[in-house]
């Protein structure tokens, strides 16, 4: 089976000799929900820009479902839908017109385009706004409009560049649900996001890009297995005046009712609870301090940065 996306030795050097991508190679399989993560300026948007031909590559190859973006650009473009980071629709046009026109650019007849526009605007909760100027939509609505626009030609690969940036939690969750649904229906999805919780919750596979290089490309599960320790926040019933000491478990007193405990993968939480009980401390609730993927992400990017400095 052809990969949904195959990138090989992709380089991009911008004017001023800034090398945004340094020969990255990547494959995304059909049906995958794939996260492309990286700090600001790492090369995520450049990669996406090249995939959807808004950025001209310096060298390398990109193919979408076996169609090379240079030699078979028409077919390659038919396969991909893109939701960019910034709003890029005509703010004076109505959502329904934006969608019908976009379908037209893909050669879809107007009557079919109108049916699809209604379908996607309804699915994304925008149908009642379909005939108002799009500049009057809220930020969240504008993001959903861009998702609907990317889907209007029913691409096999959907690329979303930070689709939930600036979107409130409720709306973010409903967008996640929608993306899960279309992924379940067979659409391959590539997502960049700064919300690592989003990537952990939605995606099966991940690539982390930093300074134009891919520093990790694996499954989310395998990546999380690399995490050796977790930081737990414990809410304590008793009022504590000083930090308790338990051998093997570094503890920090956050306030008189809260502790932070570092637990390694090889250690048992039961042992921790037993030791706390023996010390007369009762735990009311417990939670992870940070998102697990977020911790790993910082670890990897930090390592890459120190590696660069050593070079």
């Amino acid at each position: 089976m052809q990969p949904a996306l195959a990138i090989s030795q992709l380089n991009k050097t911008y004017e001023g000799n800034f090398q945004a991508l340094k020969g990255i190679s990547l494959e995304v399989q059909p049906g995958d929900f794939f996260a492309l993560l990286g700090p600001n300026g790492a090369g995520k948007s450049t990669t996406i820009g090249i995939i959807c031909s808004l950025v001209l590559k310096t060298s390398g190859t990109v193919s979408i479902f076996g169609c090379d973006i240079d030699t078979d650009f028409s077919q390659a473009k038919q396969h991909v839908g893109v939701v960019p980071q910034e709003f890029n629709f005509n703010q004076f046009e109505k959502p329904v017109d934006i969608l019908i026109n976009q379908a037209g650019y893909f050669g879809i007849p107007r009557e079919i385009a109108a049916e699809r526009a209604e379908k996607y605007l309804r699915q994304l909760g925008l149908w009642d706004k379909s005939h108002v100027p799009s500049r009057t939509l809220s930020g969240g609505m504008k993001r959903r409009l861009m998702i609907a626009r990317a889907l209007i030609h029913e691409p096999k690969l959907l690329v979303l560049d930070e689709p939930t940036a600036g979107v409130d939690i409720e709306l973010r969750r409903s967008m996640w649900e929608f993306l899960r649904e279309i992924n379940a229906q067979g659409t391959t999805i590539i997502l960049t996001t700064h919300y690592l919780e989003e990537a952990e919750s939605l995606c099966r596979n991940v690539a982390i890009i930093d300074h134009g290089e891919i520093i990790q490309n694996t499954s989310i599960r395998a990546l999380l297995q690399q995490l050796n320790k977790e930081l737990f926040v414990l809410d304590i019933r008793e009022q504590l005046s000083e930090c308790p000491s338990i051998e093997g478990y570094p503890i920090t007193l956050v306030d008189d009712h809260t502790l932070e405990v570092e637990v390694e993968k090889s250690q048992s939480i039961n042992e921790l609870f037993d030791a706390l009980s023996s010390a007369g401390i009762h735990v009311l609730s417990m939670r992870n301090k940070t998102n697990r993927l977020e911790e790993l992400f910082f670890d990897l990017v930090e390592k890459n940065l120190s590696g660069d400095k050593n070079d």
């Binding site: 028409s74 890029n88 976009q102 650019y105 893909f106």
Partner: peptide
């Protein structure tokens, strides 16, 4: 130029329209 300024020219650039 308006399409460039608002970036909605990208709607055409990402499409297969020659």
């Amino acid at each position: 130029f308006g399409s460039k300024f608002q970036r909605n020219i990208e709607e055409l650039l990402v499409s297969p329209t020659p």
